[in-house]
């Protein structure tokens, strides 16, 4: 540009009449560009990486929703399964924690997906989309889900194996003496049936 000797239209003190052709030429060029784009300004195309992240987030969102539904069902099943009040309280507490984690994951994913990656930036100027790694978010959710399920199954097994004798006792206010008494009643009845 330093070697460009073409007189600039704004050199010196041009009048409005002198600049008018320049403005007309620029306006015509812009109009041609807009027409070539179909009459609309050019759209911002997200990068392939951002698109992939969005898809991964959606997939984890669906999985989170599935885990949320299953955890609610599991909590209800546990309530009907065991009658011990302490086991119930602890298992329901676990399920509530798990439901909160799954819900938060879903809400976070939805809020990220609803935002345009080119409008939202954090304080460092990075796009909001790039801050959240979908796989780390999903892996975190999956690990929480696994821990929640494993803990619930562990509780069920404990409540089943701590009974005396055979079978799973589902009686209100069951204690050791009541269990023994019930088993003895059943065995007595079986042996004397006629």
């Amino acid at each position: 540009m330093k070697n460009d000797t073409t007189p600039h239209p704004f050199d010196g003190e041009p009048s409005f009449e002198d600049l008018q052709p320049y403005f007309d030429e620029q306006a015509s060029r812009i109009a041609d560009i807009i027409d070539s784009m179909g009459g609309r300004p050019p759209a911002i195309n997200p990068s392939a990486a951002t698109t992939n992240r969005r898809r991964a987030l959606r997939a984890w969102g669906v999985l989170s929703l599935f885990f949320l539904v299953v955890s609610i069902y599991w909590g209800i099943a546990l309530w009907h399964l065991v009658d011990d009040i302490y086991v119930r309280i602890f298992s329901i507490f676990l399920e509530v924690v798990f439901i909160v984690i799954a819900t938060k994951a879903i809400v976070t994913i939805i809020s990220i997906l609803r935002r345009s990656p080119y409008r939202c930036r954090d304080t460092r100027g990075r796009f909001l989309m790039t801050r959240y790694s979908p796989h780390s978010l999903g892996a975190s959710l999956l690990s929480n889900a696994t821990i929640g399920f494993a803990a619930s199954i562990f509780l069920v097994i404990i409540s089943a194996t701590t009974t005396v004798g055979d079978g799973l006792f589902l009686t209100k206010n069951m204690n050791q003496d009541t269990r023994i008494e019930t088993i003895e009643t059943i065995e007595y009845t079986l042996n004397h049936m006629g």
């Binding site: 009907h80 069920v156 089943a160 004798g165 079978g167 799973l168 209100k172 069951m174 019930t182 088993i183």
Partner: peptide, 29 residues
Amino acid sequence: VPFGQCSEVYRKYAGMEGVKASFVKDFYI
């Protein structure tokens, strides 16, 4: 997998006065 519920008979007599009800799931004969 012990997903079964208590019997209807147990649920009927569980809170009844004068009757002590128990339910055992999967009692080994």
